[in-house]
Each structure stands twice: as structure tokens, then as C-alpha cells.
């Protein structure tokens, strides 16, 4: 499987061994982001990095795990509730003028969204490259709600290839 190197800037300790071992100069960039056009995927930089800041990432992702319909259905109802929790918490946070309560409700709103995102990931929307993501975008584009950013959806359909 073809791979490409990526650097986690948070872990990079600038030991620069990647510069010494890279055969193409892909790791030598102004912004510290490895140049994917030059990277051959050899993995020498990841092996040499003493901080474990470079990982080798596949360029084509394997198909995501298939999900059972019952699992999708129950997880979707759970996500519906968590999204309602997000909405209520957000509205209450807007209304209150007590600073502590505002923070707590804001945190609960974001927390509810994070849980809902994770649930929907397990309900079949793990990879942007999945067929169901494409089908969802196409379905929305066929009859978009008013104000829907259709241009963004069209661009995504063009840019992301289906992998399953």
C-alpha cells in the first residue's frame, strides 16, 4: 500500500534526523509540513526520528467496517438525543448571564456534539471516502434545503474518491 510521511508538529523536537535521511528533501520545508509531492513513502524519516513525530500514512484508505442496520438504527436514535442535548445546552448557555453556568452549559453543549459525532462515526460515517458519505451528499444535493452550501458539497464529491 502506498504511504506518505506526515509530521506531528506537537511532537517534533527539531532533531532534524529526517533531513539527514530523506533521499528527496521532502522533509526540508519552510513550514515543517512534509512535501507530499516529493515524498516517496520510503519511511526512513519515520524510522530515524527520535521523538516518534513522523508517521507513515496510507494514501488510499481501505474500506471501512460494514455496519449492521439494527446497530445503525439504534445509534442514530442515540445521536438524535445527544444532538437535542447539545441544542438545549447551547440555548441555555446563551440565555444565562451567570459566568460559571455559561461555561458549564457551553462545555456540555460541545461535549454532547463530540459524543454525537463519535456515535455517527460508529453508525457508518467513519471515513470521508465511504460510499455512504457520497450518497448522503448526493441525496441532499438532489433536494437541498434553502441556503445549503451546494458548491461545497459538489466540490467534495469531486475531490474525494469512493473507496468501497
Amino acid at each position: 500500500m502506498k504511504k506518505t510521511a506526515v509530521r506531528n508538529l506537537r511532537l517534533c523536537t527539531k532533531d532534524c534526523l529526517c533531513l539527514y535521511v530523506c533521499p528527496t528533501g521532502a522533509t526540508d520545508t519552510e513550514n515543517s509540513i512534509i512535501d507530499t509531492d516529493k515524498c516517496t513513502g520510503c519511511g526512513d524519516c519515520a524510522a530515524a526520528c527520535p521523538s516518534g513525530a513522523i508517521s507513515m500514512v496510507v494514501t488510499h484508505y481501505p474500506p471501512q467496517q460494514q455496519k449492521n442496520d439494527d446497530v445503525k438504527s439504534i445509534l442514530t436514535s442515540l445521536a438524535e438525543n445527544r444532538c437535542r442535548s447539545e441544542r438545549i445546552a447551547r440555548q441555555l448557555a446563551r440565555k444565562t448571564d451567570r459566568p460559571g453556568e455559561k461555561k458549564l452549559l457551553t462545555a456540555i453543549a460541545i461535549s454532547s456534539r463530540l459524543v454525537a459525532e463519535d456515535i455517527m462515526r460508529e453508525a457508518g460515517f467513519m471515513l470521508p471516502q465511504s460510499r455512504c458519505t457520497h450518497e448522503l451528499l448526493e441525496k441532499i444535493l438532489a433536494d437541498p434545503p434553502q441556503g445549503f452550501p451546494a458548491e461545497a458539497a459538489r466540490k467534495l464529491l469531486e475531490m474525494i474518491e469512493i473507496n468501497d
Partner: peptide
């Protein structure tokens, strides 16, 4: 299951999750 209609709230979570992905 077939065609479950996702609410706007859940669609927001689906798409913000894909952005994260």
C-alpha cells in the same frame, strides 16, 4: 431502517465528524 431521515442536528454532527476525519 432503510431510509432513516436524519435531523439537521445529526447531519451537523455527521459533517463535523467528517471534517475531523
Amino acid at each position: 431502517q432503510g431510509e432513516t431521515k436524519l435531523s439537521a442536528g445529526v447531519l451537523a454532527a455527521v459533517f463535523s465528524n467528517l471534517a475531523r476525519g
